[in-house]
Each structure stands twice: as C-alpha cells, then as structure tokens.
C-alpha cells in the first residue's frame, strides 16, 4: 500500500518532465514574440532586442529550457514577463476563485446527477429515465458559453435574481460569495450532470440485475436501502472514476466559464497569459494543472480501496 503510494508519486516526475518539454516547445515554436507585446506599438527594434535580452529570450532554446527546468526543480516557476511577479505568487492569487468554482460545480453535479441516475436505473424505461437521457444529449451538445450567456440573460438580466458577472471572496460576505458562483457553477455543471448521470444509470442498472439484489429484497429490505446500500455501493467504482475524469476535464471548462462570467481565476490568467505570450505563466499554470490532474487520479485510485474491498494494491 505504502509502496504503491510512493511508486505512484514517483511516477509524477516523468509525467511532469514530458509535460514540461511539450509545453515549452509548443510555446517557443508558435509564432508571436513576448518582447514585441511588452514593448508595445511604438517601440523600436532596439527596444525589443533589449527586452528580449532582459527576459533571457536571446539564449538558444536548449539553454532557456535548462535554466527554466533547473528553477522548477527548486520550486521556482519563474517570473511573469508581463506582471513582473513570480509565477507561483500569481497562481496563488488566482487559485481561490478557480478552486471554489470547481468545488461548487462538482458538488452540484454529483448531488444532482447521482440521485437522478439511480432513479432512472430503478425506473428503467420510465418517463424519468427517458427524460434524463434526452437531457443528457442536450447537456453534452450545448456549448458552455452559449448556456452561460442564456443563463445570464434570463436569470440576471430579465429576472434580476443573481449578479451578472464577477467574483466576491468569502471574506466579503457569504451571500455575495455564493450568489456570484451559482450561475457559473450551474453553467459548468450541466455537462457533468449529463455525464455522471448517464454513467450512474448504466452502472446501477447493471448492479440491479445481480443476484445480491434479489437476496437483499428477499431479506425484506426497503427499496431505498436496496438501491443505496446494495446497488449504488456496487456501482460506485465506475461512478467515482467518471467523477475523477470530470474534475480533470473541468480544467478546460473553467477557462471558458471564467471568461464568460469575468471571474479572476486561473482560467482567465491562462487566457491572458497566452494572449500576452507570457511564457513562464502559461508554462507554470499548465504544470500546476498537470500535478493537480495526477493527484486527482491518485485519489480516485485510492478511493477504490474504500469502495470495493476486493481491490488491493
């Protein structure tokens, strides 16, 4: 078990190395010069050359990579070209809104989708089942930004119920904090509700055909207990797996959602950094997401031990 943990944590290193190389190369090989962006429209060629030199961009690629990679190993993600701040500090500042949005989204998605999936499996072929399947097709197909603007238009502009955009820290009051997160979380959650509900329905339907369900019923257990303690408990592994995948995919969704709702999180930071050719920030954020992704996967794998006693590492 401990050996498994150590082995998995060590496996993070080669993953991060590959991510680092790929991110680094993609950024350098795509057109666009950060020095030109920083220097602005009125700069001379000489100004730009000076800026390039000050940023270390005049060195050969291999040297640049070596410097950057050595710094990473000591926990230093470099300095932003644009903000003139350490990348770690930038990520720290922007982490909270993104984390809160992701948390709200995933909690909302799980709370809605798992019960829906279980009910749909229980009443297989019923109106709820068919309704849910229809909804999930819709949920999969509607783009996040379309849904986002529709929700803003109806809920905020027409009904005036929730703020249109922005983010408030939890220190600025609980309701302002929550009210600013509801719409983004709902927008982002729709696709996960569709995804998780479908998987839950399939896994629970399958579990419901098993012999131990018949045993549970023959014991005179109420249907709710049969569904939760026997069917859902046995269907948990695929459901948790897809929730894990969902959290990982969320990273992509957050970028668009934060833009639509003007939330100053990591998604916005990434978009701004890409537009500004702020290489260290883009590299840092992607590395950070990669670590998060690997850790989430590890957590999912570890959760299997709790969910299914037959699984041992």
């Amino acid at each position: 078990m401990l050996q498994f943990l150590i082995r998995r944590l060590l496996a993070v290193i080669p993953v991060l190395f590959v991510v680092a190389v790929v991110v680094f190369l993609i950024l350098r090989l795509t057109p666009g010069d950060p020095a030109a962006v920083i220097a602005g429209n009125s700069a001379t060629l000489e100004d730009i050359a000076n800026i390039r030199k000050s940023l270390g961009l005049d060195e050969p690629l291999l040297i640049q990579f070596g410097i950057w990679f050595k710094a990473i190993l000591t926990g230093d993600l470099g300095h932003s070209f644009y903000y003139r701040l350490p990348v770690t500090e930038l990520i720290g500042q922007r982490l909270e809104p993104t984390f809160m949005l992701a948390l709200f989204t995933i909690v909302l998605a799980v709370m809605v989708s798992v019960p829906l999936g279980v009910l749909a499996a229980w009443r297989h072929g019923g109106w709820l089942d068919r309704g849910l399947m229809g909804f999930s097709v819709l949920g999969f197909s509607i783009p996040v930004f379309v849904l986002g603007y529709i929700l803003i238009w109806i809920v905020s502009l027409k009904l005036n119920l929730l703020p249109v955009q922005g983010y408030k820290r939890i220190g600025e009051g609980f309701w302002p904090f929550v009210s600013h997160l509801i719409l983004p979380a709902v927008t982002l959650a729709v696709i996960y509700i569709a995804l998780i509900a479908r998987v839950t329905r399939a896994a629970v339907s399958e579990a419901l055909t098993e012999d131990y369900i018949r045993t549970a019923r023959s014991k005179g257990l109420p249907e709710v207990r049969v569904l939760i303690k026997h069917a859902l408990a046995n269907a948990a592994v695929p459901i948790v797996t897809v929730i894990g995948i969902g959290i990982a995919l969320l990273i992509g969704g957050v970028v668009v959602t934060e833009t639509v709702y003007a939330i100053p999180g990591l998604g916005q930071l990434t978009v701004d950094a890409v537009l500004a050719r702020d290489f260290p920030v883009v590299q840092g954020v992607i590395l950070f997401f990669s670590v998060a992704y690997v850790l989430i996967n590890l957590l999912v794998d570890l959760s299997y031990i709790v969910l299914d006693p037959r699984i041992r590492y």
Binding site: E210, D211, Y212, T215, K229, A233, N234, D308, P309
Partner: peptide, 9 residues
C-alpha cells in the same frame, strides 16, 4: 458466489 453483496462485510 453472487448471492452476497461483494462490497459489504
């Protein structure tokens, strides 16, 4: 083999 719930003691 299958009549008991595999994830419950």
């Amino acid at each position: 083999m299958t009549a008991l719930n595999p994830v419950m003691a």
